[in-house]
Design a protein around this nucleic acid. Sequence first.
DNA 1: GCGCTACTATGACCGCTGTCATAGTCGGAC
DNA 2: GTCCGACTATGACAGCGGTCATAGTAGCGC
Lengths: 199, 199
Amino acid sequence: MTQERHGPRERMVFSAAQLIRRGGVTATGMREVAAHARAPRGSLQHYFPGGKEQLVNEAVAWAGRYAGRRVARFLAGLDEPTPSGLFAAMAAQWTEEYTADGFAAGCPVAAATVDAAACADSTREAAAAAFATWRQPVAGALADMGVPAARAEPLATLMISTLEGAILMARAERDVRPLTTVVRELGPLLDAAVRPRPA
Amino acid sequence: MTQERHGPRERMVFSAAQLIRRGGVTATGMREVAAHARAPRGSLQHYFPGGKEQLVNEAVAWAGRYAGRRVARFLAGLDEPTPSGLFAAMAAQWTEEYTADGFAAGCPVAAATVDAAACADSTREAAAAAFATWRQPVAGALADMGVPAARAEPLATLMISTLEGAILMARAERDVRPLTTVVRELGPLLDAAVRPRPA
DNA sequence: GCGCTACTATGACCGCTGTCATAGTCGGAC
DNA sequence: GTCCGACTATGACAGCGGTCATAGTAGCGC
C-alpha cells in the first residue's frame, strides 16, 4: 500500500487519508501523519504551509480521485457491464478489505464530512468536490450501460449514498452483512433502469 | 429543543448527542457539553464516573432510541402507510432541519462510528446497538405494511444505509438534493416489496 | 571556495483536553 | 443542634494538539 517510490509529500497526503479513514480528522495529529509516512516532521510545514487544513483537504481530494479512478477499473473487471455489477464491485472492495484487515477504517470523505464543524469550511468544500469526482464516472458508466441520461446522475447519487451508509453500518456492527444486503436489494432496481439496448 | 424540565443528567446526555452530531466525538469536549447543557461542570464526574466514554455511549444510545421512536410517529402521520411514505418521512425530517437550521449537524450514531478508532470499543458497540434499535421498528413497520418477513430486515437495512449516506452527501454539498433524490429513486423499489394485501 | 535553494531537524509556545483531588453547599433525617 | 448523602464548585495536573522560530544540512550552479 505504502509505495516508497512516491515522494515524501505524496506519502504524507496518503498517510493523512489513511489515518483520517480510521479515526476522523480531529483524532489524527500532524506528527502522527509524518510518523506514519516515515517523513520528517519538519517537512510538514514545508510542504503544507497551509497547515493541517491544507493537508486534510488534499487528503480528501486524493480520496475522491482514487474512488473515481477505481470505477474504471471495476468496469474493466466486469465481463458484461451492468449497473448492479458495478455496484457489487464497489461494495466488494469494502467487504474484501473488512474480511482481510478488519473494520478499522471507513471512507475518508465521510470522516471529513462528519468532522465538519471541527474543520474549516474549505474542508467541507473539498468533501463535496470529492463526492462529485466520485459520482461523475459512476454516472458516466451508467449512461454507457444504457441508463437514460436523466437518471444516470440520480442513480449514481443513490449508489454512493447507499454504499456510504452500508460502510458505516458495517463498521459499527463489525459485519459485512449491511454491504452484502444492500447489494442484493438494490441490484434489481439499478438494472431495471437500463433501457433496452439495440442488440 | 432543550427542555429545561429534564434533569441535568438527561440534559448533558442530550447535549452530548447534539454536539457529537456537529463535530464528532473527539472534537466534543466534556466542558463544552456541560456548558451547552447549562449544567455544572462538577456534575460530570458525579453523573458519569465512567468519564467521557460513558457519556458518549449514553448519548449514542439515546440517539438510537430517539430514531426508533420517531418511526412510530412517522407512521402515525401517514394517511395510508407505505414503505416509500415512511422512507420519505424519515428523509423529510432531515430536509426540514437542513433548510431551517443549516447543514451543521448530522447523525450522532454515524459520527460516533466514524470516530471509532478514537473511541473505546464500547462506543462502537453502542453504535451497533443504536442501529439495531433504529432498524427494528422500521423492519416491523415494513412487515405490517405487507412486506414479506424475509425482506423486512434487509429493506430496513437498505433504507437506513441509504438515508445515512444521503445525510452525509447533503451535509458535504450543503444541499438537500441527495436526500430528495434517494427518496424519489428508492421509493418504487420499496413499495414493490409489498405483497398484495387482502382488500 | 561562495551563494542559493530545497529540505530537514528541533525545541518551545500556548491552548485545550480528560481526569483527579479537594473543598464547599445544600437539604433532610432524627 | 449533628450527621450524612447528594450534588456543586474550583483548581491543578499531565498530556497532546497545531504552529511558529530558528538552526542545520544537502545538493548544485558557478
